[in-house]
Computed example of a mutant assay.
Amino acid sequence: MRRGLKISLVTLTGAALTLSASACGGKKAETGGGGDDKKTLKVGLAFDIGGRGDQSFNDSAAAGLDRVKKDLNIQTEEISAKPDEPDADKESRLRLLATKGYNPIIGVGFAYTNSINKVAKAFPNTKFLVVDADQCKVEGTNVLGACFSEEQGSFLVGAAAALKSKTGTIGFIGGVNVPLIHKFQAGYEAGAKAAKPGIKVLPAKYLTEPPNFDGFKNPALGTEAAKGQLDKNADVIYHAAGGAGIGVINTVGAAKKLAIGVDSDQYNLPAVAPVKEQILTSMVKRVDLSVFDFVESVSKGTFQAGTKKYDLSNDGVGYATSGGKVDDIKAKLDQFKADIVSGKIKVPTK
């Protein structure tokens, strides 16, 4: 069930979400203080296209925000992006959050990178996080970029796909043809060939080309792409297509073939419930952890600007075991993981 939360920028002006993140009492510190034990935090989060309810990338960020509320006892505000909006709209949204005292502020998705780099300069006392920082680069002493080694997690699910394929042919469907998604494709293909050198990996199918980002949110596009790869004898298909991937999973599952989810463990999603037993695994990307880690660091006064990498070594990426379909190959997958962490295997990103 989709429940994308869209809050107009006007409604934010009346929000008064203030709760001390400190265990002890004391006077309220100025907004943006990073090293004070006594301060008030109001966390603002701007979602990527699809918003809360996309059952993939954004929902992983939402899970991190929910954990912030529960474990840190900090109140939050969230807003959604509009389809195909210009950077100027993202900047306006971020500036309004900052002006209203939201600190820290989180932009979910690489598309926020340039906007946060600009806005952060105007609000030096406010801490910002870019989830999936573009090319893993951010600017400013008050900006953190969370970067993920998607290729490493994709290597493991690629190995699983090859080991489980009965036809010897597997497929990959990317949402939008951008460098970030190329990392998923590269890792998947490398993992498949490492596990079974003779495996046939169909040419990758990308749903849209930028600036059209429907490939991350339109399930109908995923449905058509999946049909095309099934017709070419693929019996395991991995999607890196956000909300559009729901169409991939349902189509592959209905054909009694195996699908691989992305970003979150997609096995228990309501939208794919009828075909859940056809989900082989999911490449898990701990966007939730990056959101929580960032807010916690600001609340504790330990924030450090720059970039933070989430990979196999710190379980920032990985694979899901729900459904039990990889239980019999788990030892092999974990050996691949160990070899990647040790540096024995170098996973390509292109």
Score class of each variant (00 low, 15 high):
residue 1 M to E: 13
residue 3 R to P: 11
residue 13 T to P: 00
residue 15 A to K: 11
residue 26 G to T: 14
residue 31 T to Q: 13
residue 32 G to E: 05
residue 33 G to L: 13
residue 33 G to H: 11
residue 35 G to Q: 15
residue 41 L to Q: 01
residue 47 F to P: 02
residue 48 D to Y: 09
residue 48 D to C: 10
residue 49 I to A: 11
residue 52 R to T: 07
residue 53 G to V: 08
residue 60 S to V: 07
residue 61 A to Q: 04
residue 67 R to E: 14
residue 71 D to P: 01
residue 72 L to M: 13
residue 73 N to G: 15
residue 74 I to R: 00
residue 79 I to Y: 00
residue 83 P to Y: 04
residue 86 P to C: 05
residue 88 A to V: 11
residue 88 A to Y: 05
residue 89 D to H: 02
residue 95 R to Y: 10
residue 97 L to Y: 03
residue 98 A to S: 09
residue 99 T to C: 12
residue 100 K to Q: 15
residue 102 Y to A: 14
residue 102 Y to K: 10
residue 110 F to E: 03
residue 121 K to A: 15
residue 126 T to M: 02
residue 126 T to W: 00
residue 129 L to R: 05
residue 130 V to H: 01
residue 132 D to P: 07
residue 133 A to E: 03
residue 133 A to M: 08
residue 135 Q to S: 13
residue 138 V to W: 01
residue 139 E to Q: 15
residue 142 N to S: 00
residue 142 N to E: 00
residue 144 L to F: 07
residue 144 L to T: 03
residue 145 G to R: 07
residue 150 E to F: 06
residue 151 E to W: 04
residue 154 S to H: 01
residue 157 V to Q: 10
residue 160 A to Q: 00
residue 166 K to I: 05
residue 167 T to E: 06
residue 184 F to L: 09
residue 187 G to A: 12
residue 188 Y to K: 02
residue 189 E to C: 05
residue 190 A to E: 09
residue 193 K to E: 07
residue 194 A to K: 02
residue 196 K to C: 01
residue 197 P to S: 15
residue 203 P to A: 05
residue 204 A to S: 15
residue 208 T to C: 12
residue 211 P to W: 11
residue 213 F to M: 14
residue 217 K to S: 11
residue 222 G to A: 08
residue 224 E to C: 13
residue 224 E to Q: 15
residue 235 D to A: 08
residue 235 D to T: 06
residue 242 G to A: 08
residue 247 G to I: 10
residue 250 N to R: 09
residue 251 T to D: 06
residue 255 A to W: 05
residue 257 K to G: 07
residue 257 K to C: 13
residue 262 V to T: 11
residue 263 D to L: 05
residue 264 S to F: 08
residue 271 A to H: 08
residue 272 V to N: 04
residue 285 K to H: 05
residue 287 V to D: 01
residue 291 V to Y: 12
residue 294 F to H: 04
residue 298 V to G: 10
residue 299 S to W: 06
residue 301 G to A: 04
residue 302 T to V: 08
residue 303 F to W: 09
residue 305 A to G: 12
residue 306 G to M: 08
residue 306 G to W: 07
residue 311 D to L: 09
residue 319 Y to M: 04
residue 323 G to M: 03
residue 332 K to F: 10
residue 333 L to G: 04
residue 334 D to G: 13
residue 338 A to I: 12
residue 340 I to R: 02
residue 343 G to R: 07
residue 345 I to T: 12
residue 350 K to W: 09
